[in-house]
């Protein structure tokens, strides 16, 4: 299998705010991601599962070159997230609720704008826009300002804009958040289509059913460390994913759930 993503001992700490500062415990520093290493391969959906504060979003932000790791490195298609940021940015798509689109623009304008920034040729861009807008039913509201659209409509627009440049490696952070069941299904079906096209997808979520439905392999992240990493099949041999997760959580943190 072709290795697309290689994460090698990624570590990231943050200074804590005064409210959370407990010098006797951690010296005012929160280690969000601690020596994280894993790989993802061409044509697979890798699920990153973990509770809030486990370091999922920090990991994804480092992979998207939005923040720098304190130590360690990761390569996407052989390009380093530390030393070759622009090449990495060019080859990835990143969808997260943290990244917003300007609501004064229309979906059509936003798609064109971001495709232009990624250097997509006009004819390629237009063909891709027609295909994606049609698949997600965006044509009906393509000329309306984003601010006038519903949450589900906005999420659809964010999704198509994030892959306007047809990236090989895609990071989806909670892609079905805020979507109704019908739109949610359109998105999950689309993720499967992308996998079939040979795209590599990192999917961060806390929805077990979504992981069970979509992911080929799963990494369970607790307190910034990878508590388990295996194929979905192996992880759910004895127990279902939810029970496996809570068992790991209790053994790592010592907290009874």
């Amino acid at each position: 299998m072709e290795e697309i993503l290689k994460v090698d001992n990624l570590t990231k700490s943050f200074k804590q705010s005064k409210k959370l500062f407990k010098p006797e415990k951690n010296g005012g520093v929160k280690v969000a991601v601690n020596n994280l290493s894993f790989s993802a391969y061409k044509g697979e959906i890798f699920g990153l599962l973990g509770p809030n504060g486990a370091g999922k979003t920090t990991t994804l932000r480092m992979l998207a070159t939005l923040i720098k790791p304190d130590s360690g490195n990761a390569t996407i298609n052989g390009k380093s997230i530390v030393s070759d940021k622009e090449a990495v940015r060019r080859s990835i798509g990143f969808l997260t609720s943290e990244l917003k689109l300007d609501e004064t623009f229309t979906p059509e304008y936003l798609f064109n704008f971001f495709a232009d920034l990624y250097g997509v040729e006009t004819n390629v861009r237009n063909a891709r826009k027609t295909q994606l807008f049609s698949k997600f039913g965006i044509n009906e509201f393509a000329g309306q300002k984003l601010g006038n659209l519903s949450t589900g409509m906005k999420q659809k627009v964010s999704l198509v804009v994030s892959i306007a440049h047809d990236p090989e490696f895609i990071i989806f952070d909670e892609p079905t958040n805020g979507l109704d069941v019908l739109t949610g299904k359109v998105v999950t079906d689309f993720l499967q289509e992308l996998r079939a096209e040979g795209k590599t997808i990192i999917l961060s979520t806390h929805i077990f059913s979504l992981v069970e439905k979509l992911c080929d392999r799963v990494g369970i992240l607790i307190d910034g460390k990878l508590a388990a990493i295996d194929s979905l099949k192996n992880l759910t041999q004895e127990k279902n994913l939810e029970d496996t997760f809570f068992g790991l959580y209790e053994s790592v943190t010592g907290e009874k759930v």
């Binding site: 939005l66 940015r89 990835i92 990244l99 917003k100 300007d102 920034l117």
Partner: peptide
């Protein structure tokens, strides 16, 4: 304003210098 609305980060993940 772009930072506040979260649209600046969207711009920062593009390959634009």
């Amino acid at each position: 304003g772009e930072k506040e609305r979260g649209t600046m980060a969207t711009l920062l993940i593009t390959p634009v210098k």
